[in-house]
Design a protein around this nucleic acid. Structure first.
Length: 818
DNA sequence: CCAGGCCGGGG
DNA sequence: GTGTACGGCCTGG
């Protein structure tokens, strides 16, 4: 019979000498089933300089003792494969079970026979060999054996996924002084949250108004109840936030200690690392890793805490509760426990909503790369890219090079390459800027110049030298494996982007996720070439990619200047042209000319037109004295070094784009951020006089003591336990004060403080915000350490010195601006 | 300036 | 599980 199913979790078992993969799956009717399917175990041995007769004889008699099953070779065949661009003969060697492979391969290596693909996880091997995609529709032909469907054949039916039942979980624990100790401290409550499902279970009785709070006798019963509820709800996906590192290891430990009956097997892998927890026959997703390592790249957050991420992605926050009090309330005021239950439930709710929001993205990665979601969501770029390449290798008959050993890794870690070109801007305010950038610069260079290990130093193209590296060249005759894989990624993305334009809303969401996944994947190839753990590592490839990039951007600048444009800035893949007396379409013509000369799929694109742009001087190089009177509309700070990656632009629609200014730094007061932003806006709108006046008015307010204290709070996070600090920075003294006041403080606590008037060291004048009286703040401190650093580099461009702005005695004629 | 250590998230 | 994190920041030498 035939069934279609959607697999979400995998494992293998050895039964009667055969190896079966179990795919835990969902059926169209919403039920769950395990699909059992046999697969062969194998690896490759190179036949280079090998006496085949001798090798085959040895293989037939090879047995390595190992419990519970001796490792054996159960067959072999000679095959042709490509390794790093060269066609070679290999022996495809079949082993009796997966864990036999490393043992057998080691023996062969000891005989001097080089082995390949000996460390590929069996489930991964299986999915790649059969070209199956987790979470999507697969068709099986076979028979039920009891609850299990024994499949004869499997085949991918479509790349559609189905609806998934998600349950989010969050725990709260007993804790003295923020200490986390899963042996000493019990779990006090557990929240579960799903679609139409919400529950908090706790083991201290109080009168609760929320009906979703349930009470049990003790911690053991709590764990058993949770197990029951999960079983009854029967989700495919359990999700948590840092649940690999906290909630699930904690539950596992408490189940052990209380001897509770818990029906889900929690398997902690890699205890040495921060850990991964597999829940057998379910899919456990810890959202933090995927967000931190893959999804959160352009998220620009200062921390990956649930509160922060939920606010950024969902627009909702955690409940505000003083968790430090939970233990005390638990012991002495159980009647106040409800707010902690709500807090617990809210965390589970946020986690659930994050999972719902990110699931499409996670699944797209899984679809593209073809590996279980459990693994995909825990990978970094290096492994993600490599997994994709490994999948593509099969169809192209390519064998994967081996991973580097420890010594190779440490050698690679000491190597480095020259990076991108950044044009040093001349500080000043510029008008009429046309900004161009190369679309996907690094990927298109790799493809267009066929960069990768296979074509490196080919015998046919020695005169095809890489710019700035006369000793490097890549084959220009035959497209190599790696660039061909990357080209496929780029082409697929182009195709998806086309589809997005035509798609309906629902389909659009999925296509956007796919496009995003492909983009991340494409952009990671360059990094992969220089990643020390990569199988296809070639530093020469990475170095050549950046060398070509430097060549193209410089070439573009030179050509622009020849056409009579001035270039005021360029960074990696972008180039800022000053139109001067030219029209925008002349710049567009220039762009088309450039595109006519570019190889392959490289392309210069129009990024935008900006009426104003400001570039400032590097800190320290800036002058504090007046250099002269500005000429006409354009100001220039003359000989100062311009800061790279720090500028602000004003688009023709009036939108301001700020890059590199530290407006987002946490240890800046709100005041500094606000003033910097406003000053940038004003000077870009040609209102320099207003910018000066505004700054002076802020100074005046500060001096009068009128500034709201909230804008003056400085925040610094403790990075270790308080007692480990020797240098007494202001925030350390404040933290000590907090401890004296009975507020627990530990590594990770965000210390907030305000500097107040008085004599002596700044650190002795740092006070907790609630202790500061209105107007008590030290205005000189805020002027010198917050305002000046925020705006001086901007105003220096217009030849205003700090003295002009911040000293009342100054007689530089600023009166006219006030 | 470098090597080596520690941290993240979580209560 | 046919694996053995990792990149950034701080500190002390």
């Amino acid at each position: 019979m035939k069934i279609t199913f959607y697999p979400y979790d995998f494992e293998y078992k050895v039964e009667n000498g055969k190896v079966y993969v179990y795919s835990y799956s969902k059926l169209d009717n919403g039920r769950k089933v395990a699909i059992k399917h046999q697969h062969r175990v194998f690896f490759y041995a190179s036949l280079d300089n090998v006496n085949q007769t001798e090798l085959k004889k040895r293989l037939e008699n090879l047995t390595i003792e190992k419990k519970p099953l001796p490792a054996k070779v159960i067959g072999y065949e000679e095959v042709e494969r490509e390794l790093l661009g060269k066609n070679k003969s290999f022996l495809k060697i079949y082993a009796n079970y997966p864990q036999a492979v490393p043992l057998l391969a080691k023996q062969l290596d000891d005989w001097g026979v080089e082995c390949f693909e000996k460390d590929i996880l069996f489930i991964h091997r299986y999915l790649r060999d059969l070209d199956l995609i987790p979470m999507t529709e697969i068709e099986a032909e076979g028979e039920y054996q009891g609850d299990i469907f024994l499949a004869e054949t499997l085949k991918q039916k479509s790349k559609n996924t189905c609806g998934w039942k998600i349950l989010a979980l969050d725990i709260e624990t007993y804790s003295v002084k923020k200490e986390i100790d899963m042996v000493k401290n019990p779990i006090l409550m557990i929240a579960l949250y799903g679609k139409d499902f919400r529950k908090v279970i706790t083991w201290k009785k109080f009168s609760a108004s929320d009906p979703s709070i349930d009470f049990v006798e003790d911690e053991k019963k709590l764990l058993e109840k949770v197990s029951e509820l999960i079983k009854k709800y029967s989700p495919e996906i359990i999700t948590g936030y840092f649940s690999d590192g906290f909630d699930l290891p904690y539950i596992k430990k408490r189940v052990e200690i209380t001897k509770a009956k818990f029906d889900f097997e929690l398997v902690i892998r890699d205890q040495a690392r921060s850990g991964e927890v597999k829940i057998n026959k379910l899919l456990h997703l810890d959202l933090i890793k995927f967000i931190k390592q893959i999804f959160g790249l352009d998220l620009k957050v200062e921390s990956y805490s649930l509160d922060n991420i939920a606010e950024k992605l969902l627009g909702s926050k955690k409940h505000i509760v003083n968790l430090d009090k939970l233990t005390d309330v638990w012991n002495n005021h159980p009647e106040k426990l409800e707010e902690f239950c709500s807090y617990n439930l809210q965390d589970a709710k946020l986690t659930f909503e994050l999972c719902e929001k990110l699931l499409a993205d996670m699944i797209e990665f899984s679809v593209i790369i073809g590996l279980p979601l459990f693994d995909i969501t825990r990978m970094r770029f290096g492994r993600l890219v490599e997994s994709y390449i490994l999948k593509k290798a099969i169809a192209k008959n390519v064998i994967a090079p081996n991973r580097p050993g420890d010594s190779e890794v440490s050698e690679r870690m000491n190597e480095s390459i020259k990076g991108a070109f950044v044009y040093e801007p001349t500080p000043g305010l510029y008008r009429d800027l046309a900004v161009f950038d190369f679309r996907s610069l690094y990927p298109t260079i790799i493809i267009s110049h066929n960069i990768g290990p296979e074509g490196f130093h080919c015998s046919c193209c020695q005169d095809n030298q890489v710019p700035f590296h006369s000793q490097f060249w890549f084959c220009s005759k035959k497209q190599s494996f790696l660039p061909s894989v990357l080209k496929e990624v780029i082409d697929r993305r182009t195709e998806v982007k086309k589809q997005i334009k035509l798609a309906e809303q629902k389909e659009k969401v999925r296509l956007e996720a796919k496009s995003y996944a492909l983009k991340i994947l494409a952009n990671s190839f360059y990094g992969y070439l220089g990643y020390y753990g990569a199988r296809w590592y070639t530093l020469e490839s990475a170095a050549s990619t950046t060398a070509y990039a430097r060549y193209y951007i410089r070439d573009t600048i030179t050509k622009a200047e020849k056409k009579g444009f001035k270039v005021c800035y360029a960074d990696t893949d972008s180039c800022f042209l000053l139109l001067g007396d030219k029209q925008l379409d002349e710049a567009m013509t220039f762009m088309r000319d450039i595109n006519g000369s570019l190889p392959g799929n490289m392309e210069l694109e129009f990024e935008g037109f900006f009426t104003r742009g400001i570039f400032v001087a590097i800190k320290g190089s800036g002058k504090s004295k007046l250099l002269g009177v500005p000429g006409n509309s354009e100001f220039s700070a003359g000989t100062d070094k311009g800061a790279k990656k720090k500028y602000a632009l004003l688009s023709s629609e009036g939108k301001i784009k700020i890059t590199g200014f530290e407006t987002v730094r946490r240890n800046w007061s709100v005041l500094a951020k606000e003033v910097q932003r406003e000053v940038l806006r004003l000077v870009l709108e040609d209102k320099v006089d207003l910018a000066i006046a505004y700054t002076k008015s802020v100074v005046k307010d500060l001096k009068k003591g009128n500034m709201p204290l909230g804008k003056l709070i400085l925040k610094t996070q403790l990075t270790r336990p308080l007692k480990n600090y020797r240098v007494l920075a202001p925030h350390i003294l404040v933290a000590q004060k907090m401890v004296e006041q009975g507020e627990p403080v530990s590594s990770g606590t965000l210390i907030k403080y305000i500097i107040v008037k008085g004599s002596g060291l700044i650190r002795d004048r740092a006070k907790l915000p609630h202790e500061v009286k209105e107007g008590e703040y030290d205005c000189d401190y805020y002027i010198n350490h917050q305002l000046i650093p925020a705006v001086s580099s901007i105003l220096t461009v217009f030849n205003y010195s700090e003295e002009d702005l911040f000293q009342e005695s100054s007689q530089t004629g600023l009166g006219k601006f006030i």
